[in-house]
Design a protein around this nucleic acid. Structure first.
Lengths: 143, 143
DNA sequence: AATGCCTTCACCCAAAAGTATGATTCTCAT
DNA sequence: ATGAGAATCATACTTTTGGGTGAAGGCATT
């Protein structure tokens, strides 16, 4: 970003310099203020468009693509210290279930599910369930 | 588009007019050629950025997708009737961002993001963002 | 017996997400 | 030019999540 700004400033300086040269060399100043402005406007509009295009470019992460049946990465699981029960809750989350639904499925109270999710967030360093899912996938914990 | 160009021309004309007025009223022309240019440059850079953003919003469907990058299932997208903007929000969701974070990234208000997510839920027949992500993945909409 | 971890559950509070409704603007195709 | 759809934003309200704290029973290990 710093580089871009610098380039920007340099370009502007160069432009002014060129105009000054024109001004004193050929005495065409009075005749073409509009021309100057037009040129500058055109140039910087182009520059602006370029910047705008730069801004809207976004990147896309490349996730691992599985083959057949999924096998959770045991070492990553242990590394994160995720317990069996927590893992079950994680699976439910990834499948798009609400805490209440997970609780029903696992015959738990919603409070217990919340405890598990909270612990999962800490262990996965996530602040939202969507983020936890994302990270768990990146670690190969879930398909 | 015609309107945009017209606006553009009008703005340029107005600017030149203003500068002319300044020139003849206050005789500050010589002192501030750089100033003029700076103002014009700034203005039109902003305009250019705006135009750039506008442009990428429309002609986007074919972003640079070299080998390895994910290509969304276009037919599934159309089938679900998901608009480009909604898709961007969907991507943000899948990457674990909160509505506020998505809003910041896309220069939107959180309300707009909520509208998009609500529409996504209807189109994907989901009741939660985690479920929407799950379904979108199943449809090959997102990696 | 003491310690540590897992599992279970409760309560409270705050923040985020989701729902519903309505409005404006712009673009596009008819 | 008219109408449909996209995109934007707002306001108000409900539900779900998430965070913090505490606690009790079970099961290993020390």
């Amino acid at each position: 970003m710093r580089k871009t700004i610098l380039l920007y400033a340099l370009l502007l300086a160069l432009l002014i310099f060129l105009l000054k040269v024109l001004e004193y060399k050929f005495f065409v100043r009075d005749l073409s203020l509009e021309f100057y402005i037009g040129v500058v406007a055109l140039l910087f509009t182009g520059l602006g468009i370029w910047v705008g295009l730069k801004l809207t470019r976004k990147k896309n992460p490349i996730p691992p693509s599985p083959g057949g049946k999924f096998v959770p990465n045991e070492s990553a699981l242990q590394q994160a210290g995720i317990s069996p029960r927590e893992y079950e809750v994680l699976e439910g989350m990834a499948q798009g279930f609400s805490n209440q639904e997970i609780a029903d499925k696992l015959f738990l109270s919603i409070n217990t599910v919340k405890t598990h999710t909270s612990n999962l967030f800490i262990k996965l360093d996530a602040r939202r369930r969507t983020q936890a899912i994302q990270k768990a996938k990146a670690l190969g914990l879930i398909p």
